[in-house]
């Protein structure tokens, strides 16, 4: 019976690369479809939140440490980007690099603070960390300009031309950054570091007994998370042109967490799906916007109850791929038979 139906999943699995290229082409065409700059801006916000959700996944999904203070790393990245642009006159590309570097430091700091803790205590530390970062942003007036925020962040430039939302420039920057993040993240996940993260998440004691330096890997996870969040923050600063400490609130941290949970922890497509859904739906349903956080609350409760792995999350972690040259048992038997 099954042979008669078109095997969609198998089709998608076999032709993954061409399908991805088609998707990419479609995305690349968006700014030229004559859509309003509002739609383009929403796409840009989807890109920002996708990167943020991926960065949260490094801490929460792959490492298993729920962070409710992720807006702090986002905030650091945004401020670094804004300061680099306004005080040091850097262009966006330099600002992005700086934001990533400082983001690594911030992530590392967060990692150091939470290194001895686990579970709920770690979550609360991330909360407190976020509050402290907000306080610093509000009061370190000489650097951050306090509650007045940083305004007039110059637009991004490439080869002399301005990149804005209107001309689609920021859209492509966002898309490019997202693709970069995805490539980097899947590289990390498939490497020994990714496997180490998952080991630490699933059974820290066991991992330690196998010889993994769990504390180092936890630190690495938060550093990567900080780097990606910093990237997103800097992009946001250039996108909006104005940042202040109030924007990076607990609500934003919870939004990112909800996106990760909805889309699927420890899943890259899940991160994007979660970010897309929770950015687009509030825009489509602007008339119901007053219910937004009510929905988020329900999403959290329902997802945790019914499908904790999220929409696109798989129950298992990423499939373990054997290194090249090692044959699967069945194939080895075949070869063995032929040899004799």
């Amino acid at each position: 019976m099954k042979q008669k139906r078109f095997d969609l999943a198998g089709f998608a699995g076999r032709y993954k690369l061409p399908l991805l290229l088609v998707l990419l082409a479609a995305l690349a065409a968006v700014p030229f479809l004559g859509l309003s700059s509002y739609v383009v801006r929403v796409f840009c916000m989807v890109f920002t939140y996708s990167i943020l959700t991926i960065s949260l996944n490094f801490v929460t999904g792959y490492l298993g440490a729920t962070s409710m203070g992720h807006a702090s790393l986002y905030c650091v990245g945004a401020y670094v980007g804004a300061l680099a642009a306004t005080r040091a006159g850097c262009n966006i590309w330099v600002s992005l690099v700086l934001a990533v570097l400082v983001g690594c430091l911030a992530g590392g700091l967060l990692g150091v603070c939470t290194i001895k803790l686990s579970g709920s205590y770690m979550t609360v530390t991330t909360l407190a960390f976020a509050q402290v970062v907000t306080m610093v942003a509000k009061n370190w007036t000489s650097v951050t300009n306090g509650t007045l925020g940083i305004k007039d962040i110059p637009k991004a430039r490439l080869l002399g031309a301005e990149l804005t939302v209107r001309n689609g420039g920021m859209y492509f920057v966002g898309l490019g950054l997202l693709i970069l993040c995805l490539l980097f993240s899947s590289m990390v996940i498939r490497s020994k570091y990714g496997r180490a993260f998952i080991a630490v998440r699933d059974d820290e004691l066991g991992a330690r007994m196998m010889g993994l330096k769990t504390r180092n890997y936890r630190l690495l996870g938060t550093v990567i998370s900080g780097a990606l969040a910093g990237l997103a923050g800097c992009y946001y600063a250039y996108l909006t042109g104005y940042i202040d400490p109030v924007t990076f609130s607990f609500d934003i941290s919870m939004t990112i967490l909800t996106m990760a949970i909805l889309g699927g922890l420890a899943s890259l497509p899940g991160s994007i799906a979660g970010a897309a859904i929770l950015t687009v739906f509030p825009e489509l349903l602007r008339s119901l916007d007053v219910y937004r956080y009510l929905f988020f609350g329900f999403i959290l409760v329902i997802m945790m109850r019914l499908r904790p792995q999220g929409i696109l999350g798989s129950v298992k972690a990423a499939r373990y791929t054997l290194p090249k040259g090692v044959l699967r048992p069945a194939a080895a038997m075949e070869q063995g038979k032929e040899g004799t």
Binding site: T66, M68, S120, T123, I261, G297, F298, L300, M304
Partner: peptide, 13 residues
């Protein structure tokens, strides 16, 4: 952690 996230959701609700 699942329960922690759930109660946070409840508080939002």
């Amino acid at each position: 952690i699942t329960m922690l996230i759930s109660v946070t959701g409840v508080s939002y609700i």
